[in-house]
Amino acid sequence: MRKICALLLAACLLSPPLLAEERKINHSISLQEPAKPAHIEASLMNGSILVEGYDGKNVEISAVVKPLKLITAENTKAESSTTRPSKGLKKIANTAMYLEVEKDGNQISIDSMNKNQNIALKIRVPFNSNLDLALHRGDAIEINNVHGSIEVGNHDGPITAKGIRGPIVAECLRHDLVVIFDQYDTSKPSSLNAHRGNIDVTLPKKSDVNIEIKTYQGEIYSGLDAEFKAVDTVDKDASEHEQRISFGGAMAAKLNKGTQQLLINTYRGDIFLRNK
């Protein structure tokens, strides 16, 4: 009996709808103007994104279509309701990859909105590239050693950005957001937001940054050489000779000259600020 169950289990696991072949693609794109920064947009419905900066002029894309997960009860029900007979027919595993790559000058767009596939996307970009990344479901977004501006949002997973310079606008919903600055670019402000996840930021000691933090229920931990003070808002109504002072609401600290803003918002997540 145990042998029969084991065999049945193996048959289920090995059945074509569940065991799709992994498919890999590799593609290299040369920039129209290699001396200027590339702008890479990547948007996936399901999967993971890894972007690495390197000392090169091309954008190198590799993608792996991962095996499908077990078919859910809902999917089984939908399949059994088909009206067309399939007896004698062989079911073909759909390994077609829905991944569009467009190039327009130095702008490269990578897009896959297919819900039924999990795509692990890896992109190697020149160091000074600008990124715009979005992941709706799946795993993590990871960025390493990219020195251009970064816009990144992960609805259902964590974000890790290391060796970056900013500016960065990043948003997580329920997972952690970890950012390690190699240098802090003061050309534009940066913003890090997480609803329930923690935010962990590492800054070089020489950064000229004015940090402003708002957290409703989270804690703040700091190893920076700067004192945090509550930002008070004073509203004055001159016509009615009234004034209203709101104490707190935000905590702020200035590192060195405090040239540029770094805005950090969480609801429940804790905030960690570290020195490099």
Binding site: E171, S191, T233, D235, K236, D237, L263
Partner: peptide, 18 residues
């Protein structure tokens, strides 16, 4: 489409008196 921009707008409006 950026919540960071919308949050910053709320902060900017908070600085207005009325």
């Amino acid at each position: 489409n950026s919540s960071a921009v919308r949050l910053a707008i709320v902060d900017a409006l908070a600085k207005r008196n009325n």
